[in-house]
């Protein structure tokens, strides 16, 4: 079972570690990860294995400078 999470946020130096920390704390395994940064905006698409994607999405959404989180099951 996989779940895809799309995170959009501000291109800040700690954006990626913040997202990865949330995933690591939830014990989520990452299958693949794709990041696009443009000027001020960063878009990240993460494919997760066996994840409680809804809770992960809520936790990501409350990180500062994350502007949106979408989950595609």
């Amino acid at each position: 079972m996989f779940a895809k999470v799309r995170v959009t946020g501000k291109n800040e130096e700690t954006f990626l570690p913040r997202v990865l920390r949330v995933l690591a704390k939830q014990g989520v395994h990452i299958r693949s990860l794709h990041l696009d940064a443009e000027a001020d905006v960063v878009k990240l698409e993460v494919l997760l294995v066996e994840a409680a994607a809804a809770q992960v999405a809520k936790l990501l959404a409350k990180q500062m400078f994350v502007s949106s989180v979408e989950t595609v099951e």
Binding site: T14, P17, R21
Partner: peptide, 13 residues
């Protein structure tokens, strides 16, 4: 210290 305290702060920089 930003790395150390990332998981225990609401925000840090």
């Amino acid at each position: 210290i930003v790395g150390v305290t990332m998981p225990i702060t609401k925000y840090n920089a």
